[in-house]
């Protein structure tokens, strides 16, 4: 998952970014003002945006409106010091998906972001399942046939992204885009490495293969073989 954090307070932005990277295993880009934030949101494909309201150059609300006017469906979580009902209602009507008032709890921020991302993929609960492969995104646990698997963070993030989109073929570029911060070009061969790792841990002892490679297109998680 790749998240944009648009927050002008450097210390707060750094803390949020660190919490999302360390705790949720997300890739995080940080923008320090509204204009930069809007540029990021318009040029990259994010799984969610964390947006502060009081921003220099372009207010958070303007960023939100311009994003929505451009047709972006990315979930947006607003950070605000104010919690007047009119403001909140206005923001939600402008296309915000959720909000948190400062000072907020980092765990709550992570939980809300996770819920927003899950919802945006059409899932209602934190538990994802394909065949006998289960993933609890809230506790970061993966099981196959009741046996808990031990994944490295990058494998987990890769699997999470694929399991959020069951049956869909995801390109390598898209995976790189969503799993890494800037300058992901230099990691261009890592996806194959992690896919191989996942195959070994998930499909090795099983007759039903779940992780598939669609040559020339990308990767996909599903029970039956793709045509």
């Amino acid at each position: 998952m790749r998240i944009a954090v648009i927050e002008d307070e450097p210390r707060l932005a750094d803390n949020i970014a660190a919490a999302l990277r360390e705790g949720s295993g997300y890739a995080v880009d940080v923008a320090r003002d509204g204009a930069e934030g809007l540029y990021l949101a318009q040029t990259n494909s994010y799984d969610a945006v964390v947006l502060d309201l009081m921003l220099p150059k372009l207010s958070g609300r303007e960023v939100l409106r311009k994003m929505r006017a451009g047709g972006a469906k990315t979930p947006v979580l607003i950070l605000t010091a104010r919690d007047e009902k009119e403001l909140i209602v206005g923001l939600l009507n402008d296309g915000a998906d959720d909000y948190l008032t400062k000072p907020f709890d980092l765990r709550e921020l992570r939980a809300r972001l996770q819920s927003l991302i899950r919802r945006s993929q059409g899932h209602a609960v934190a538990k994802l399942a394909i065949g006998d492969l289960e993933m609890d995104t809230a506790r970061a646990i993966v099981r196959r046939g009741g046996v808990t698997l031990t994944l490295v963070p990058m494998e987990y993030r890769l699997l999470e992204y694929l399991m959020h989109r069951p049956g869909k073929v995801i390109s390598k570029t898209k995976l790189l885009e969503h799993l890494y911060d800037f300058h992901w070009e230099k990691f261009s061969n890592v996806i194959e490495v992690y896919i191989a790792g996942l195959r070994k841990k998930i499909d090795a002892g099983s007759s039903v293969k779940l992780i598939h490679t669609v040559r020339g297109h990308g990767y996909c998680v599903r029970e039956e073989e793709p045509e």
Binding site: E9, R11, L12, N15, I16, A18, A19, E22, G23, M54, A81, R82, T101, K102, P103, F104, D105, L106, R107
Partner: peptide, 24 residues
């Protein structure tokens, strides 16, 4: 409103720094 924003942001920074430290 500005003062509230500044104060809450300042508190949010302290809180997030402490939470991040205690996160793991």
């Amino acid at each position: 409103a500005d003062a509230a924003h500044e104060m809450k942001t300042a508190v949010a920074i302290v809180k997030s720094t402490l939470q991040l430290t205690l996160d793991r």
